[in-house]
Design a protein around this nucleic acid. Structure first.
Lengths: 120, 120
DNA sequence: CAGCATCCGTTCCGATACTG
DNA sequence: CAGTATCGGAACGGATGCTG
């Protein structure tokens, strides 16, 4: 299975992008809607604070996954969207979604559905 | 792209399994060698402490990714291996590896190879 | 509106020492 | 050999207040 030393680095690189309490949600919203303003993301993710939303978006921006477009108007207007390159994450996110779904069911079979698998 | 609320949960579930400073390495070693004793894992991962190795293995065990087999001998002998179910993670790990590899190159193009992409 | 700065609690992880 | 227990620092994330 490939080389171990490098696999370590590469898998951790992929993880690095997705890890962060709000990154997956942010990405799903942007993939779904295309472009969203800062305030729109805030409304779509009620529990996130401005600080966290900002830092997570900045990290995604650094990795060229998310594009930030600032309009020089008053009041300020900033739009976020997935970059073309960032779109390449979609298959990976879907794989994770698929596996996660399976795993939630598996956990259910193993331990029973303690942590409400339904709704929300 | 599927339902957002559920995608969030499922992707985070998948992330939960892989997140932890030593989980990816552990999984790669076990996938490569099949079965390894605690001490063998320690030697293969020089920087990990017993404490960390233990807790990460326990978490993987809880999720039915890793199997722990204890031999009632003195001195103690414990072997770890990937469960049959856990083998289902392999495609996902490979996808992450592939994407991570691409991304390291992409970062290199964007910012130059500051963090030594070579060796190790 | 879209942030940044500050403070503060929690969680994660490493170092070290001890045990069956 | 394969752990457990305890302590302490660092990183992560939440709450709140201020600003152009």
């Amino acid at each position: 299975m490939v080389n171990e030393c490098n696999s370590k680095r590469t898998v951790e690189t992929a993880l690095e992008i997705l890890v962060g309490k709000w990154k997956p949600v942010i990405l799903f919203h942007l993939l779904e809607k295309g472009t969203l303003r800062f305030s729109e993301l805030q409304r779509l993710i009620p529990d996130v604070t401005k600080k966290m939303l900002t830092t997570q978006l900045r990290e995604l921006e650094y990795h060229d996954i998310v594009k930030r477009k600032v309009y020089a108007v008053i009041p300020p207007k900033v739009e976020y969207s997935i970059t073309e390159y960032g779109g390449g994450l979609k298959p990976l996110l879907l794989s994770m979604h698929e596996w996660g779904l399976t795993h939630l069911q598996h956990l259910d079979e193993l331990y029973g559905e303690s942590q409400e698998t339904i709704g929300k």
